[in-house]
Design a protein around this nucleic acid. Structure first.
Lengths: 134, 134
DNA sequence: GATTAAATGCAACTCACTTGCAATTAGCTT
DNA sequence: AAGCTAATTGCAAGTGAGTTGCATTTAATC
């Protein structure tokens, strides 16, 4: 997993190591502010700007992925060892759950045929009410 | 269509009328800034804050819908008379095309069964390269 | 240990969007 | 047609996520 860093000519600094640890410990997508806060709680305080720069870089290297729920901020999750999936977010409490499914293999072909675009990715999120908020 | 306004106790002001006209003339989802700019070009200049407030209100009344491509801004499109659909955006030029399809009826049931959430909506966007940018 | 490119932290900035408030206006009511 | 009132508008100022410039620090290599 750290090979990707070396391959990209990136250093394994202390802040970066701490950020990666946060992601390894977090199953669900988290925001930059949440990463920042968790670092502080773990007495590994890192400047927020460093968090942002690392998120951009880790995404660039394909080590993390971004997910957006149109909350006015992005969320990120590790990619390592996890299969492609989607999410559902509760409109009440904001809680997010993984959906280990993706129904879009075939649809992608339909889209490519119809639009003459070459599809390179997609975003799919569900919204609703969780058992507690319902 | 304007009945929704009256039903909501809303007035049909000049700025509002102009904003609705912009949407009726625009097939694809546009940003607040684009609405604002088009109003200016049509010599119907309206303050940007008025645009934002109207977008919020029209969305509230279900007259327009928001779509996001994680560009750091939201887009909006009229709902009136149009069927539920999704979009694809070009990573090169940002161009958006409509996809008049939605494969998620059945999947929604699967999601509800698996997560015990009550699904109330979903967001699905494709990204890729259009014929010109490819 | 010396070298150096990458990375960090701080301060200042940008940009989408929101809020407070006084002035205006649409849509009644009489 | 004039008056009333709540809704709406524009302006100014604020918020919050994310970015940029730059001097200082640090990981990795020589």
């Amino acid at each position: 997993m750290l090979d990707s860093l070396k391959a990209g000519g990136k250093k394994l600094t202390k802040p970066r190591r701490a950020i990666l640890k946060i992601f390894q410990e977090s199953a669900l997508p988290i925001t930059a502010a949440e990463v920042h806060e968790r670092l502080k709680r773990a007495h590994r305080t890192v400047d927020l700007v460093t968090v942002y720069r690392n998120l951009a870089m880790l995404k660039e290297l394909g080590m993390i992925e971004s997910v957006g729920f149109h909350e006015g901020q992005m969320r990120y999750e590790v990619r390592h060892g996890r299969q492609h999936h989607h999410h559902i977010q509760c409109r009440g409490c904001g809680r997010i759950a993984d959906l280990m499914l993706c129904p879009l293999k075939k649809l992608t072909e339909v889209v490519e045929r119809r639009t003459r675009f070459v599809v390179d990715s997609h975003a799919l999120e569900f919204f609703g009410w969780c058992p507690e908020c319902r």
